[in-house]
Each structure stands twice: as C-alpha cells, then as structure tokens.
C-alpha cells in the first residue's frame, strides 16, 4: 500500500473529493441499501408463506402494524427519542468535562482514570438492576442506566484527545499570554470536538439499543417497553414493527450526528490512501 502524495497541493495531501463524486457515492450507497432492504423484505415474505404468523408475519401485516404504531403509539417513539437524546447530551457534556479534568489536572488524573476504567468494566445489565433497586421513578432509571454507561466513553476519548494535543500549538497560543479560560476556549475545546463527535458517532447506535433494553427491563413506556408487551402477547408483527422503527430512529440519529460532523469539522482535510 502506498500513500499518494500530490506535490501540487498545499499540504501534500490529496484535495477533497469533488462534490459530484460525493453525490455519486451517495447514489451508489442508496441503491445498495434499497437492494438489501428489498431482499430482506422478500426473504421475510417468503418465510411467512410457510411459517405461522407468530414466527414470521407477512410484510403486509408488519406494514399495517407499523402504521398502527405510528398512528396510536407514536408517543412511545417520541419518549424513546427524547430519553436517548437527553441522556446522550448529558453524557457528552459530563463525560467531556471529566475527560478534560483528567487531561489537565495532573493530581486528579490517576484517580478519575481508575474510576472511569472500573465503571467501563461493570456490565450494562448490572447497572440496569442497580437502577431498579436504587430509583423508584422510571425516567430516573433509564437516565441513570444510559448516563452511567455512556459517560466513560466520552471521558476516555476526550482524555486521549487532550493527550494528543500538540505541544507546538500549546506553545504558540501561550506566546500571546492567554488566561486559562482562553486556553480552554481557543485551543482545548476546538481540539476535542473531533473526539467528542467520533465518540458520539461510535456510541449512538449502542445508546439507542441500550435505551430500548433499559426500557424493556425497567419501565413500561418507550419503544423497548412496547416491544416487551408485544412479546408477552405473542405479537410477532409488533416485535418486528418496533424493531424496524428502532432501526429508523437509530439511522435518523446517526444521520444527524453525521451532519453535525460535516458542519463542525469542515476544516479537516480529506485524505485518501490507495
């Protein structure tokens, strides 16, 4: 493998792909996704011809169920999305702050780092059970489970980001004699934004699944809880319908993160390796 270096460009890196090429990639990916969705739908439909409805309902039946959910149970979708977004936003701020403190307050670093690493070792299921014992309110339970699982991801990645901060950049900012707040605002914060976005991108799918799982075991509202109810009633089209909606929510949130990444990191060069 060799890295292509273009001497014509300023930084010795390939220029970003032109907008036309990006559109072509999008069309290609969209086409591939449609093909895969069609194949899955066909497989489900074919299976439904030979299996009872509680094993695999037909595509039409599942579609009807989704329409019913969207018409009558949409509040559970909204509840799950709000729980997910609020918990992710809180974890992002809190985890990033912990990461910054770990990165810049030397005496606190080993202690906070040890705590965060230990927390990451606790299984998600244990946190769910702790939440049921410790909190009476359903919202508190879901929020606690998500926050305690997600915060360490942000803390560790932001900490790694601060450790990767170039001493050259620190030195150049310090030549102007800034205050500590200015160093944070002008140097540290913009530097850790890619790490925060990368973490969000990595954990958002996991967080969506954890939200549904937490709802399933600890509360009676939200998409996870409704999936549990559908399972109790042997309503397979309900389980599949909620699953499809969860996937759509997941993809929607990931699209928002990807959009935010594109907007906030437009200063980053696109590098291609061949």
């Amino acid at each position: 493998m060799s890295t292509r270096i273009d001497p014509e460009t300023a930084a010795g890196l390939e220029p970003p792909a032109p907008a036309g090429a990006e559109r072509n990639y999008f069309k290609r990916d969209l086409f591939a996704s449609i093909v895969i969705i069609a194949l899955i739908a066909f497989a489900m439909e074919a299976w439904s011809w030979v299996a009872p409805v509680y094993i695999m309902p037909s595509v039409v039946l599942t579609g009807d169920e989704i329409l019913t959910i969207l018409g009558e149970d949409y509040i559970h979708i909204v509840t799950t999305i709000l729980r997910l977004l609020f918990a992710v936003a809180f974890s992002l701020v809190t985890g990033s702050l912990i990461g910054v403190i770990m990165g810049i307050v030397r005496p606190a670093e080993p202690f906070i780092k040890a705590l965060v690493v230990i927390f990451t070792g606790v299984p998600a299921l244990s946190w769910m059970l702790f939440a049921i014992f410790w909190f009476r309110g359903t919202e508190e339970r879901v929020f606690f489970i998500l926050a305690v699982i997600l915060i360490p991801f942000y803390a560790l990645n932001v900490y790694d980001g601060i450790k990767a901060l170039s001493t050259d950049l620190v030195e150049v900012v310090e030549t102007f004699r800034p205050s500590r707040w200015q160093v944070f605002r002008l140097l540290i914060l913009p530097h850790i934004v890619p790490y925060i976005l990368m973490t969000t991108k990595s954990i958002i799918g996991y967080a969506a699944r954890m939200t549904a799982f937490a709802e399933l075991v600890s509360v009676n509202t939200g998409m996870g809880a409704r999936m549990g109810l559908a399972q109790d009633e042997l309503n397979m089209q309900g389980v599949i319908g909620w699953t499809i909606l969860l996937v759509i929510v997941n993809l929607g949130v990931q699209a928002i993160v990807a959009w935010a990444e594109k907007r906030l990191l437009k200063w980053r060069p696109e590098v291609s390796v061949r």
């Binding site: 050259d168 150049v172 030549t175 913009p190 934004v193 200063w267």
Partner: peptide
C-alpha cells in the same frame, strides 16, 4: 512580544 516558529503552527480549525 510575538513569536513565529520554524513550522507554521497554525490552528487547523481556524481560517
């Protein structure tokens, strides 16, 4: 006082 270094040390996120 102000300093200019061997490498430009520009902040990559600033125009």
């Amino acid at each position: 006082l102000a300093v200019s270094f061997q490498n430009d040390r520009l902040l990559p996120w600033r125009a």
